[in-house]
Design a protein around this nucleic acid. Structure first.
Lengths: 138, 138
DNA sequence: TTATTACTTAAAGTTAACTCTAAGTCAAGC
DNA sequence: GCTTGACTTAGAGTTAACTTTAAGTAATAA
């Protein structure tokens, strides 16, 4: 079975070996094997776990909570419900973040228009002269 | 002209007066007025600035960079181009974040399906028995 | 007049997620 | 045998964005 060194894994996930050791220290690789010399041996299953860790992280989950999920995984079928519920929660959280980004985007697009108009006329005053228009572009 | 105390502003923006003082200390309210007793007087224009600050913050911009924008605003029409470019950059950044969230969502939805299937059959092994299926659901 | 409440400041503390440092081990190539 | 480079550890340092603390002031209500 193919295995990987810490720096191979780091490179393919675009992170540093430091970060991987930090993750291990925080308990995200509870069953990782070591060489006789103490070096970490990453298997495909560890890479798969890391993929999920990255996903949970980018959904906004803190590392300490990701650790709980990893623990549930080691505990087998008795924790299937918790893990399912967790992913449903993650789904709701990501949906909320998308909603928020959408609102942010609307304001930013208004501002792009505001500054484009100002640049075209050479001064921001163009928006002060028209109160009705300003209400929409400020 | 209507003015607001720090705690009125804090309440209407759902933050604490502490945070507003912190923002002021970081230079986000360069021209805020004070009472003879030294208390901050927030005007509508300060509330408007705060709205933009919140927007830039939720787009992922750090406070130190938001400060530069606030400084540009004080400098008048000579910085219109910088401000326009900044909002174009913010737009690109938010678009990238949305893209990333979308990918995250796809993985999460796969996982929801994975755990739903496992729960239905009572064990996670259901995904180990079918290698072709596993390739899509893991 | 006194108590309460909201404010003021500077500066220290907190939290997450790294990131770096120092000191050391180990295997491979010359 | 020696050097090189990748790895190991514990623990300290960093950064952002607050958050809290301590000590004090100012306005208002009883």
């Amino acid at each position: 079975m193919k295995t990987y060194s810490i720096s191979e894994v780091a490179e393919s996930f675009n992170m540093t070996p430091h970060t991987l050791r930090y993750y291990d220290k925080e308990g995200l690789f509870p069953s990782i094997e070591r060489t006789s010399g103490g070096k970490r041996i990453f298997k495909q299953s560890d890479m798969d776990a890391l993929k999920v860790i990255e996903c949970l992280k980018s959904s906004g989950m803190p590392i300490k909570e990701i650790k709980h999920f990893i623990e549930w995984c080691s505990e087998g079928d008795s924790t299937l419900q918790q893990r399912y519920d967790m992913f449903l929660e993650r789904k709701a959280s990501v949906e909320a973040q998308m909603e928020e980004l959408k609102k942010t985007m609307e304001v930013i697009e208004h501002k792009c228009f505001y500054y484009k108009t100002a640049l075209d006329s050479g001064t921001e005053d163009v928006h002060k002269n028209n109160k009705i228009k300003s209400a929409f572009t400020h």
